[in-house]
C-alpha cells in the first residue's frame, strides 16, 4: 500500500500518522507538502490532525483552499481511500467532501482523553476488522469536534449507512453521537478521534492500528471490500 500524509502549515499529527502507517508491514508512506499538486498513485491519502492555519477563521476553512486540495478532490472522485482525522475531518467538511460542519465543543473547552467508540458499521473499508456494535478505545483531542448537520442530512447519513463510528459517551455534543462518517460512496472517512494515537499497547490501545489495518486489507485485496 502506498499512502500519503498531507502536511498543511499548522498540521501537527502528520508525523504521528506517518509513523503509524510505517509500522504496518508492506505499507509505504510519503509526507506530502500542502503546496504539491499531484497525488496520483496513492492508495490512501491521510489528512492529519492539528491546527492548519492556526484554525483561524474556522477549523479547516483556510486549508481547504491549499493547492493540494484540488488533487485530493480528483482522487476522491476516482474512489481513492481518504481518511481525515480531527483537523483533517474539519478540512473535509469545509471542502464539501463530507456533509455537515463542526462547532465548538459543547463544554467550550478543548478535550483530550481516551474515548470509547461504538462501531456502527463493520462493512466499510475502514472498519472491516471490527464487529458491528464493538467498542473501541481511541483518544480524542479537539476544541471543535461538535458535529452538526440538519435533520434531513442526518436521516440520509443513517439511511445510507454513512455513520461508521459513534461515541459511547459523547465528549463534545455532536448530533447523534457521531464520531466518524463516510461520504455516500464510502471511500472518504472523517473522524474526530485519533487512530494514530492508539497503535501500541503502551499508549493504552491498539484499536487505531486496526483502522489503518482495515484500509491495508482493502487495498491489498485489490481495492474491493
Amino acid at each position: 500500500m502506498k499512502a500519503a500524509v498531507i502536511t498543511f502549515p499548522g498540521s501537527n499529527c502528520d508525523r504521528d500518522c506517518l509513523r503509524a502507517l510505517e509500522e504496518i508491514p508492506g505499507c509505504e508512506a510519503d509526507s506530502v507538502w500542502h503546496a504539491d499538486q499531484d497525488l496520483a498513485g496513492y492508495d490512501l491519502i491521510v489528512l492529519p490532525g492539528g491546527f492548519s492555519y492556526g484554525d483561524y477563521l474556522r477549523s479547516g476553512a483556510i486549508a481547504r483552499f491549499s493547492p493540494v486540495m484540488a488533487a485530493l478532490k480528483r482522487e476522491a472522485d476516482r474512489g481513492v481511500t481518504i481518511l481525515g482525522i480531527c483537523n483533517g475531518f474539519q478540512v473535509l467538511l469545509e471542502a464539501g467532501l463530507l456533509p455537515g460542519a463542526m462547532r465548538r465543543n459543547q463544554s467550550l473547552k478543548f478535550v483530550c482523553k481516551p474515548c470509547e467508540l461504538v462501531v456502527d458499521r463493520a462493512d466499510s473499508r475502514f472498519s472491516s476488522r471490527f464487529q458491528e456494535g464493538q467498542t473501541l478505545q481511541v483518544p480524542v483531542a479537539h476544541g471543535e469536534g461538535n458535529y452538526y448537520c440538519d435533520d434531513e442530512t442526518l436521516k440520509r447519513l443513517h439511511g445510507e449507512g454513512q455513520v461508521v463510528f459513534r461515541y459511547a459517551d459523547n465528549p463534545n455534543g455532536s448530533v447523534a453521537d457521531i464520531a466518524g462518517i463516510t461520504n455516500e460512496t464510502g471511500n472518504v472517512l472523517g473522524m474526530m478521534p485519533h487512530p494514530e494515537r492508539a497503535t501500541r499497547a503502551r499508549l493504552g490501545s491498539v484499536d487505531g492500528a486496526e483502522i489503518f489495518g482495515a484500509i491495508f486489507d482493502f487495498v491489498s485485496a485489490g481495492g474491493k471490500s
Binding site: 465543543n105 459543547q106 463544554s107 467550550l108 452538526y148 455534543g173
Partner: peptide
C-alpha cells in the same frame, strides 16, 4: 453569526 436553528454553545454560556 451562527444560524438560528444551530445551537451556539458560546452564546448559550
Amino acid at each position: 453569526t451562527i444560524k438560528e436553528e444551530v445551537l451556539d454553545p458560546q452564546g448559550k454560556a
